[in-house]
């Protein structure tokens, strides 16, 4: 359904919604984990009282999530303070910590941080000393994570029951695209409390890399909404688009950036540099269909395209032989 993307792009489009339209909009927004962002986006919009109440609840809920996400970052900062490392917040927590528009109402799940690769072991030790524990004691999964993924196996805090993912690069080591993690760390920006966020251009490119490499485009509508907010906020700074172009080249993400810019412009009317966005590619419409493949009950539609994307995502994450081994081990364990 298009109504969600339309409401995000232009809140006034909700003026024509009937009761069923509102209910469907909320179901789709919840399924895309965008109800909080929608609630902030429509805050000034006239609407029926029942809809206003639901969105007020969503704003309060998002505020609570934001608070606990920032607290999780603060506790990680305290745990890692003695190591004197650059600790870079990623994704939702970064937007919230920096007070950016992209953070307004955004759902935030696990805490994602990036540290230098050589500091990974020390960071792990310090986090465990501060009460985090392994989620998966399974040795196969553990080896898999360490060998092929871009992070430590996830840790969970035994008191607060919250997960942390410690990355030393931004994408799986097996992915075909390999953003320059060292450069992202080196150019990160320090916040008041000592935690860091990525430089503006890297923040955009990290999101872009995730959209196409981390999973099956699930959450793409929300990811592109992040991009829209980031580009509107950061794009007005002098020289941003030139730096973005250079940075995309450095990370090998030019094709992905161009596609993401076209998609976010299509869905959310984001002002983008037309030269960077380039001409529409053969697959653009396929991506759009996939991104909008949800009905008014919150269900995924277009099962066939989903399957195609599932294959694609594994392809990107792991060279094929490794995938077979991974699946085989999973199947064997299931029996």
């Amino acid at each position: 359904m298009r109504a969600l993307a339309d409401a995000m792009r232009e809140p006034a489009t909700t003026a024509t919604l009937d009761a069923e339209g509102w209910t469907s909009l909320f179901a789709a927004a919840r399924a895309e984990q965008m109800i909080g962002s929608l609630a902030f986006r429509l805050e000034a919009q006239p609407m029926p009282a029942a809809a206003a109440r639901i969105l007020a609840d969503a704003r309060a809920s998002a505020e609570q999530w934001r608070r606990s996400a920032l607290w999780e970052a603060e506790m990680a900062r305290r745990a890692l303070a003695q190591l004197d490392l650059p600790v870079v917040l990623m994704k939702g927590t970064a937007y919230a910590a920096a007070g950016m528009d992209a953070g307004a109402g955004r759902s935030i799940g696990d805490l994602d941080i990036m540290v230098p690769r050589e500091a990974l072991k020390a960071a792990e030790t310090a986090l465990i000393a501060a009460g985090w524990e392994w989620v998966k004691p399974d040795p196969y999964d553990d080896a898999y994570y360490r060998d092929h993924m871009h992070e430590l196996p996830p840790l969970i805090h035994r008191e607060r029951d919250r997960m942390i993912d410690v990355h030393h690069t931004t994408l799986p080591l097996t992915a075909r695209i390999t953003p320059d993690a060292a450069a992202m760390l080196a150019d990160s920006v320090v916040l008041e409390d000592g935690l860091r966020i990525m430089a503006p251009e890297d923040m955009v490119l990290h999101g872009v890399a995730h959209l196409f490499a981390d999973g099956d485009l699930a959450g793409g509508l929300r990811n592109l909404w992040d991009q829209d907010r980031l580009l509107r906020e950061l794009g007005v700074v002098a020289g941003f688009w030139d730096r973005l172009r250079a940075r995309a080249r450095l990370h090998g993400l030019e094709w992905h950036l161009a596609l993401a810019l076209r998609l976010t412009r299509h869905l959310y009317a984001t002002p983008v540099d037309p030269a960077l966005a380039g001409r529409a590619g053969l697959f653009d419409r396929w991506f759009v269909r996939r991104l909008l493949a949800r009905d008014g009950w919150g269900r995924q539609t277009r099962k066939f395209t989903q399957l195609a994307f599932y294959i694609r995502s594994h392809w990107l994450r792991m060279p094929p032989a490794m995938l077979a081994r991974h699946l085989w081990t999973k199947w064997r364990k299931a029996t």
Binding site: R67, S68, W71
Partner: peptide, 12 residues
């Protein structure tokens, strides 16, 4: 018998 503390930064 006890005291309750609501800690605003953590929400706990």
């Amino acid at each position: 018998a006890l005291d309750l503390i609501y800690h605003r930064p953590s929400g706990m």
